[in-house]
Design a protein around this nucleic acid. Sequence first.
RNA 1: GCCGAAGUGGCGGAAUGGUAGACGCGAGAGACUUAAAAUCUCUUUCUCGCAAGGGAGUGUGGGUUCGAGUCCCUCCUUCGGCACCA
Length: 854
Amino acid sequence: MASVYDHTKIEKKWQQAWEEAKLFLQTEKQGETVKDKMYLLFAFAYPSGSGLHVGHVESKTALDILARYYRMQGKDVFFPVGWDAFGLPAENYAIKTGVPPVETTKNAINTFRRQLKQIGISYDWANEIATCHPGYYKWTQWIFAELYKKGFAYQAEGKVNWCPQDQTVLANEQVVNGTCERCGAEVVQKDLKQWYFKITEYKDELISGLDQVDWPVATKQQQLNWIGKAKGLNIDFKLSEKTEITLTVWTKFWETVFGTTFVVIAPEKFLEMKLGELVDSQHQAAVNDYLDKAFKKTEEERKIGEKDKTGVDTGLKVINPVNGQAVPLYIADYVLMNVGTGTVMGVPAHDERDFAFAKKFGLPIQQVIVPSGLSFESLVSTQRDPADFRSQFLAQVKEGMTVWPWEGKIVNSGQFDNMESRGDGKQAMAEWMIEQGYAQWNVTYKLRDWLISRQRYWGAPIPVIYDPEGQPHLVEELPWELPTDVDFKPTGESPLTSSVEFQQRTEAYAAKHFQRLMIEKGWDQNGKGWRPEYDTMDTFVDSSWYFLRYVDARNEREFASKEQMQKWLPVDFYMIGPEHIVLHLLYSRFFTKFLRDQGYLNFDEPFMKMRHQGMILGPDGRKMSKSKGNVINPDEVIEKFGADTLRVYEMFMGPIEADKLWDVSAVAGVYRFLRRVHALVSAGVMPVGVQRKLHQTIRKVTQDIPELKFNTAIAAMMEFVNEWEAALKTSSADKLGHEELTSFIKLLAPFAPFLADELYHQVADSSKSSASSVHLSEWPQWNEELAQEEAVMIPIQINGKVRTQIEVKTDSVGDKNAILAEAKSTQIVQKWIEGKEIVKEIYVPGKIVNVVVK
RNA sequence: GCCGAAGUGGCGGAAUGGUAGACGCGAGAGACUUAAAAUCUCUUUCUCGCAAGGGAGUGUGGGUUCGAGUCCCUCCUUCGGCACCA
């Protein structure tokens, strides 16, 4: 009598058993060397109050399958877990309720931990870390100190993005369309002294290092875009009023330089160069007026200005070095200070922005390229009549409604006329200008240094104190702990300013460490006048090195020992959501390279292989959210169907990297599958007739898992179960032994670990010594001979269309002539080739026959 | 606008250049049942046909090939990222 599949009982039982047996703790191997290491990493989660969602389950299950699979293959698997525990939500909650973030966070972590154990993720819990723990942030602060000592952490005053809602500074990366990434409030600019990390020092290696890693091309592309390396030419325009002053423009399209009819400078640049002094009285008022307005503009107004160009004529003229022509100098805020040189040459004939500007201010438009050949034809849609489109387009350009494309023959450009604008002409013009001495190559980057100061409470304190003169001094006794006696209500200053303990600690620290300086300067020797740095670090700092700490999480003397790092690093496989593509990866790579250069690491890139899980959408095809009421709660699925079903379903939904929508009834389908497996194994009869299919299934699953093709691996197991059931009804009493039955259970083990261990013990053969858990057992091998079909059906095509098929014994698929003869002798083929001439006969061994007739 | 990814049945999806639609869901028919649920069996891309057997078919239009969902070109759509970046 087959027992029922009681998923709740089974899962509870094995969760407990694994925990008691410490089945997955790598820490036990602390002293041992590893032969064949496999470091599997997921982006550690922010422990939010709402607990695990189905998206977490997806990425964690995928990695868990790899972990269990590689373990069974005898690899040393390192699969750690931790929490990105600092951050705004806990602090915002504290502001609302007064509950300290440390408590909220602890509770949330407990919930997550319970849920992760419930879905059977085989983490090495002994290395669990939380970024808010002093034992962790001690080393975050230590890295800050290292950066500071090497000149990679510095303070600078400047315009920063300020979120009035969250009362904090934001990194450029956290500003989305002029609004705060987190709360959506409009970001304003503010002048503040802030801490920066010199990530730009590694800009070139952050590009070249991408060649070393196996990442999705799209991800690499986005990193490249963010770094934004662009090669252009600096071209010097001299002021005609005062020729010792040079305005340098930067351009990628220097082949249009003869078409320059004006030059535009950014308002900030204009001030910086003190050009205001040269403006004549006639233009003075308008210029001052414009500068005033430009600096007062809000983000909102700037965006409106995208279409409507504003600017002002300075009355000054600059000389185009290529033809000696004097062109007017304008100030306009569509030119950005931090792009290129903050000054651009206006070529209205071939650039849309310059075109709009010229139209508005009535400036001349000088065409210097005539579009020609293929490049122009590529503008033409096949849907439209090319000739018609061309004439329409040309008419548009003539009427001054649009700009000319800049691929084609160069004109109106002296000795460069008739050259190709994107080919020889471009090259020749650059060489000539450089030779003439007024142009140089200039490679520019979009990447800026990383602003890490945050005026928030719930983060790692910046380990710096200031002396009475305001000079910063590093705190070297770490951890420099986050005080607890603070007022969470935002005041525009960091909440840490309200801590009495923090101030006293700072004075005591100063008194202890800076006596000599105090005496020298004649300051109070008890530390009066000193103050701590009130800002905390961006939480991205915490998450930029956590994968290093994992390998030696309890080390109190260093962030990780050389031996442990040698043993496990770098990360072999990293699974993170697509939302982390730019920032987290860039910062982690920067830290890795920095620490390598200080002699702590011996590798260049932290994450060798990486993939991104897709998003799980609600049943309605939209992103899950409470307000839309389409959220699937994993706890409910577990209660009804069990964690094994939840896991297998999420892996079966589709390719791991694709977005997928939740299908409530398909979950039940997976549950049916597991129940059938349970019943079949419990009955214990595997007919001899399924042996071939079993070996094929082992082969398929073994090959699919490392390629992350979990959906097809599961489909293969379903196929096998279908065949197994069918065979029970038809075949004789002959049955396979214990080994075959166990092989199938092992295939299932990474996907449905609880059920698999239950079944493994159910069928355990007491006469043989077997592992204490299926998860410690050996991965099954397939036998290529047993997996081979006796005969194959070969489709016969006539002119590429399948008309019939013939059966061929597997050992004679190589006999081309015999197979072609047999194919042609079939009635159906005879019918199709009758009265026609055979032009060609193709046979792809074991695959297909194609007879071409005329 | 630029960069990137993707378009396959009613749905999720499968397919080293070689029988398109595996596997699952849903739907239809049947069995069991007083009935329903559950379970089991069969059918299920569209289309013509009683059938045998045809025809069409992987976003569009072309190309390469004996043969294209797959490779090349073109355009369209959707999604993700970047964007007054010169």
